[in-house]
Amino acid sequence: MTLLFDSADRSQAARACEDLQLGAMSWSLWGMLGWHDIRKRYRRSVLGPFWLTLSMAVLVASLGFIYGSLFNFHLSDYLPFLALGLAIWNFVAAILNEGCHSFLEFESLIKHVRMPLSVHALRVVWRNLIILAHNAVIFVVMALWLGLWPGFGLLEAMLGVVLLVVNAVWIALLLGIACARFRDIQPITGSVVQLLFFITPVMWKPELMAERQLLITLNPIYYLMEVVRGPLLGETLPLSTWAGALLITALGWSLTFAVYVRFRKRIAYWL
């Protein structure tokens, strides 16, 4: 007979590892649930999730014209930059905001049936990745229209996306745990996200920040965004950008893992 669980047969660290491993292996579960969340949001609408694409396209077009003329940019240069930046920013902001709910949202489920808790965080990341894919369509169309071809940059950007997603998972887990315990963190995150939008080079190019470069170099989101956006726009990224992104990944996961080992079994009690 299969042993389902024994609360004393292994350390909390081993248990946290097992949770993450089983969570990752349950891809068919969170894959289905993530799709379900998207379908639920857009049920009965004609365009479905392509509403996201459409509204993002309108946003990119209007912001592109306004800021392009404010900053005196060439639109053929600025529009792809903006389309990518906004799509990635949307993903990051959604992970930060929805990450706060990764456990709260599924309270009844968590209290009902035992499953790896990481499944819930992965579900949140997956559904936002689906949204990111819909928003990426705008850049693809734009690139075809403008004749942009990133070449090997495409491969580099793929690695960047992997890194972005790996980071999204720890953010969703860590914020999920923190918000399950301290409900005040969610409104705080909300306002921080708003602020981050203005200090992250989404609408403006990093070169514009001649002074106060520290604002950029100390912004973790900048690195995660740049490893996807830079290569796709045909830029050669300095090694320091990749190093920064990898460092953030390592630090973030170390912190999250430590917290997960310590508090994983308390999460159900906190809900």
Binding site: M1, T2, L3, L4, F5, D6, S7, A8, D9, I110, K111, H112, V113, R114, K265, A268, Y269
Partner: peptide, 19 residues
């Protein structure tokens, strides 16, 4: 059901649980 892991003591379950 394994939803709450005991803060002290031990629980051991063999078999598939349907809550």
């Amino acid at each position: 059901a394994g939803v709450y892991e005991p803060t002290a003591g031990r629980i051991r379950v063999e078999g598939k649980i349907t809550p």
